[in-house]
Design a protein around this nucleic acid. Structure first.
Lengths: 189, 189
DNA sequence: ACTTTTTGCGACATATATGTCGCAAAAAGT
DNA sequence: ACTTTTTGCGACATATATGTCGCAAAAAGT
């Protein structure tokens, strides 16, 4: 367990995430990351050999975190409506953070190569599946009434992505955000 | 009126749009456009001197077209609900077309420089304004009933963007699209 | 027919990013 | 203390994109 390398790896990943969030995927070069990290050419390449590798790593860990959080909630028997509410809040918190919002870069990344595309498609499908499952649970538990859970889930996921994209251009007020959450809840009732 | 130059300019713009739609903004180099058009270095630079200039042009003409279409509808006294319906259909048609969907690239473009950012912010504001106006009209005319037209407009615009982004990854069926439109209409009633 | 303007060409100099390599210092293992 | 492994460095060769320029052909104007 060598911590030194791990630390620089983490620093590289964090720095890269912020850069991807700010500029997009293709606009970021290894050179940019290297400079921002204060590393030398060889220093960076020792750990990662391309932006593709770095971005893939970012997505994979994000994915893993999401799944473990969900598993935990499921095991604790949290009600569907509560889970969805928590999910939405957490999603918005991350998506609306300028240093973390890489969802725009994600599509670019997907376009850059077939494996990347497959990874991102799976990620998108997972999101919809998870939300659909929460809604279904909420319906069973009487919190929601919804004839087409999948359509509702797709609606919610796409709305979130759209809001985040819009927010990156024109930051939303807390009130506006709240209003959008209300619209979603009304839709499910 | 020299048609020769105009034709190549159009060809460059069309080609560039398709490339931007496919790869994103930063991933497209003048070199790519040049090659795709079958032009020489000097041939391309005669007309445009950067991808920034080309992208700006694309956005501006798109903007102009949207405004003239709206003006026409307004002058003909089309009802608000009908206008919104036509707007949504036309938007979806364009947004869901892989060769035309540049809305993902748009955010990257916005991040690339301050003027670009200003242009795109205005574009986003315009979209919301236009839809809000249509909803307001629809309310006046009794087709809709909606206490917060602006929030509804924001919801619709962001949903469209999100759907388009999702569609670029996982193409939606006609049924799914129809279902989403229904959800929107229900929201406004 | 002629002159002028527009258009496109490809060579060139320049700038910038990529990826590799041997070396040395730092850290870890024994 | 010594050896081995990990980490970071910066020079290097390579690849790729940018932007300019003078020239020639094509088109348009007269």
């Amino acid at each position: 367990m060598s911590t030194r390398g791990d630390l620089t790896r983490l620093k590289i990943l964090d720095t890269a995430r912020a850069l991807f969030a700010e500029k997009g995927y293709a606009a970021v070069a290894m050179e940019d990351i290297r400079i921002q990290c204060g590393l030398s050419r060889g220093g960076l390449y020792r750990h990662f050999s391309s932006t593709k590798e770095i971005f893939t790593r970012l997505i994979e860990t994000e994915q893993n975190n999401a799944f473990s959080a969900l598993d935990k909630a499921m095991k604790n028997g949290i009600p569907g409506a509560l889970m969805l509410n928590a999910f939405l809040r957490s999603r918005i918190k991350h998506l609306f953070n300028p240093k973390e919002y890489i969802d725009n870069a994600v599509n670019e990344f997907a376009a850059s190569c077939p494996e990347c595309h497959a990874l991102i498609v799976k990620r998108a499908e997972n999101s919809v599946d998870i939300v659909a499952e929460m809604i279904r649970l909420g319906c069973e538990q009487g919190a929601y009434s919804c004839e087409n859970c999948r359509a509702a889930a797709l609606h919610i996921i796409c709305l979130l992505e759209g809001l985040a994209k819009h927010n990156a251009l024109i930051p939303m007020t807390a009130q506006e955000t709240k209003k959008q959450l209300e619209i979603i809840e009304n839709m499910l009732k």
